[in-house]
Simulated assay, not measured.
Amino acid sequence: MSRAATAFAISLREHARNYVLLGLLVVLPVSFITLAFAVTQDGQIPVRTLVDGEMTTVMRGLPAVHGVIMTPITSALIAGLAGLFLMHEAKDTDGRLVSVGYRARQVVAARFGVLAAITLVVTGVSVGVLLVDFTPEHLWWFVAAMLVLSATYGLVGMLVGTVFDRLAGMWLMLILPMLDVGLFQDPLFVQSDPDWWMTLLPGYHSVRVMVDVALTTDVDAVASLGWAVGYLAVVAVLTIALFYRKTGLKRD
């Protein structure tokens, strides 16, 4: 465990020196979330969400809906890029760690521990910026859904890093959260039952929870959070399997 902790600390320091990631962490929450409230005109908009167990259309303030959606977009985008960078770093160095005496599970624990730490920071910053302008009706449910979504996109970023180089992966991870959360899951755009393929996207279940717990007084989307955790678990298993393959580690 001491070796895993050492590898964790070294990897975390490397990411702390990643000025692209740090810049995004400072700039994106303010530019996406704060400006969403600042530039969105006051008004009411219909939002489809669960109320008493049934899908219902409710009227909510346009700035609040916009800000609630921009928060997970921000977190997913930064976490996804962090996962991408982490995978590329791992492909370059983790085989050498094993050659000098590290066990494969120690390396895996360190890498995924770094992703977990980054997920916590990204979620905390994004939610903190949101709270300046808006407080969800059920804050801790909202935070839980944000953590699941951020972790899922962090793993998706690692998966992308196993296939694409850094530049192509960055473009993909910039676009995917925008399309998923910002278009296909956004109640500003989708005001009817989603198509079946939309339900397969990483943001579907988590965003359902966020819209419910942020904009209504009752918590009706608990089952969706369970599905989101299940989706996260499947992506985690796939990511770990590909991590071993791409880094050349042998299971121990």
Score class of each variant (00 low, 15 high):
169 G>E: 06
100 V>W: 06
14 E>S: 13
215 L>F: 05
8 F>R: 06
74 T>C: 14
45 I>H: 04
184 F>Q: 09
159 L>R: 04
84 L>Q: 02
41 Q>R: 11
63 P>S: 12
75 S>E: 02
151 A>Q: 06
9 A>K: 12
136 P>L: 05
16 A>Q: 11
127 V>Y: 04
194 P>L: 09
249 L>M: 03
177 P>V: 12
128 G>W: 05
31 S>W: 09
251 R>N: 06
13 R>T: 12
54 E>G: 05
206 S>K: 05
14 E>Q: 14
151 A>M: 14
122 V>L: 07
250 K>V: 15
206 S>Y: 02
22 L>T: 06
248 G>A: 07
141 W>L: 11
110 A>C: 08
216 T>P: 02
25 L>A: 14
175 I>M: 15
74 T>G: 06
180 D>H: 03
130 L>T: 05
76 A>H: 00
17 R>T: 09
146 M>L: 14
106 Q>E: 15
237 V>A: 15
205 H>V: 02
164 F>N: 04
212 D>E: 02
1 M>I: 13
105 R>L: 07
27 V>M: 13
237 V>F: 02
19 Y>M: 15
5 A>P: 00
156 V>C: 13
155 L>C: 10
40 T>K: 09
89 E>D: 14
180 D>Y: 01
18 N>M: 04
104 A>L: 12
9 A>C: 07
172 L>W: 08
33 I>K: 09
96 R>H: 12
53 G>M: 07
126 S>W: 02
3 R>N: 13
203 G>Y: 07
12 L>N: 08
208 R>D: 07
34 T>E: 13
238 L>V: 15
234 V>D: 07
126 S>V: 01
66 H>L: 08
155 L>Q: 05
2 S>G: 02
10 I>R: 11
61 G>N: 15
235 V>F: 08
97 L>S: 03
135 T>Q: 14
116 A>W: 07
248 G>S: 08
93 T>F: 05
188 L>N: 12
188 L>T: 10
41 Q>F: 04
192 S>V: 14
139 L>V: 14
9 A>D: 03
17 R>S: 09
125 V>W: 00
95 G>T: 01
238 L>C: 10
192 S>P: 00
124 G>D: 08
89 E>P: 00
200 L>W: 03
188 L>E: 12
106 Q>T: 05
141 W>N: 01
79 A>S: 15
218 D>W: 05
176 L>M: 14
163 V>M: 14
50 L>V: 01
189 F>R: 12
50 L>E: 03
1 M>L: 13
193 D>L: 15
38 A>G: 10
243 F>D: 00
5 A>D: 04
55 M>I: 14
47 V>L: 05
171 W>S: 13
87 M>K: 01
206 S>L: 08
250 K>A: 15
45 I>A: 11
117 A>G: 03
166 R>I: 12
25 L>G: 10
165 D>L: 04
31 S>V: 15
22 L>G: 12
193 D>S: 14
